[in-house]
Amino acid sequence: MTTATFKLIGATAFTAVMAVTSALAGPIEDRIAAGEPLRIGFANIPIWAYPGDDGQAEGFVNEIAVETLASMGYDNVETVVTDWAGLIPGLKAGRYDMVTGGLYILNSRCQNIDFSEPVGNFGDAFLVPTGNPKNITTYKDVLDQGVTMVTGAGYNTVESAKKEGLTDAQIMQVPGPTEVFAAVKAGRADAGILTYFEVKELADKSDGALEVTDPALLPDWTKNFAAIGFRPEDADFLAKYNAAQAAYMGTDEMMATVTPYGYTESHLPGDITAEWACANR
């Protein structure tokens, strides 16, 4: 972890600081010139991005972003934690300057924000009761059996489920992983779907009540590419950030930092670009 200076603003503090953040909002380079911290926004998503005990940005996506910024000479970083659904609206409103947290590059999101080049490729998986009594491994299984799945509001999995024919009535949308876990464990949903990393962690803490399906059974088009989100008006800074990130991706230094989170060389994005992902996801 880099020795960046962090200040944590919790979601509950947003109302109190709205006037301040609005006054400070502006292109990243203007903030740098004014000596203001760069504000990283993310939801509290285990493994991907979450606040540490002292407010530092932890999780492998945060680590990649913070280390990339450090390589550019920027270590005055402020973390802003919000709900997942507030990430893109908050970025557009100027509450923070960039968003992390495992945000996938999706065409619908590319209409609203710009993305860095990908920081990795990742698959989703289902969280099901142990033994998988409904034999749910794909969206088609959910559709054909007329059962209910649960996922996070605003997650890519909502779009994926609807692409496979599921109706709103079959998709329970909740704030995040904790609520997905509760819904499946209590039987309010027959299966939950999140990223494999999230589902694996939830199953591990279920005391054997829940298990993870094989992510390879989902269609290849459901594999996604995570990146860092920026406002379009920060395009000049994004170009510099991309150059620094490219120099960092896949290095021994990076892999030593992200491996403890479960990120492996198989997750490196390869030659996939943000432009391709915007057009194809």
Rank of each mutant, 00 (worst) to 15 (best):
T3V: 08
T5D: 10
K7P: 12
G10I: 13
T12N: 08
A13P: 15
T15A: 12
V20T: 03
G26A: 09
I28P: 01
E29N: 10
R31H: 11
A33F: 05
A34I: 10
G41H: 05
G41T: 02
F42Q: 04
F42A: 03
A43I: 07
A43K: 15
N44G: 08
I47A: 08
A49E: 07
Y50L: 07
P51M: 01
D54I: 05
G55K: 11
Q56W: 05
F60N: 10
E67K: 04
E67M: 10
L69T: 01
A70E: 01
A70M: 01
M72C: 05
P89T: 07
P89D: 07
K92R: 09
K92Y: 03
R95L: 00
D97S: 13
G101D: 15
N107W: 13
C110H: 12
N112V: 15
S116D: 06
S116Y: 01
N121K: 06
I136H: 02
T138S: 10
D141P: 06
L143A: 11
G146S: 10
M149C: 09
M149E: 09
M149Y: 05
T151W: 04
G154A: 09
T157D: 07
V158M: 02
V158Y: 00
S160W: 13
S160I: 15
S160A: 12
K163H: 07
A182S: 14
A182M: 09
V184C: 04
A186F: 05
G187C: 06
G187M: 04
R188K: 13
D190Q: 15
A191K: 09
I193Q: 00
Y196Q: 14
A209Y: 11
L210I: 04
T213H: 08
D214N: 13
D214E: 09
D214L: 05
D214W: 05
P215T: 14
L217W: 12
L217D: 14
D220R: 08
D220P: 09
A227P: 00
I228H: 09
A239F: 04
Y241D: 04
A247Y: 02
D252I: 09
M255F: 11
P260H: 04
E265A: 15
R281V: 07
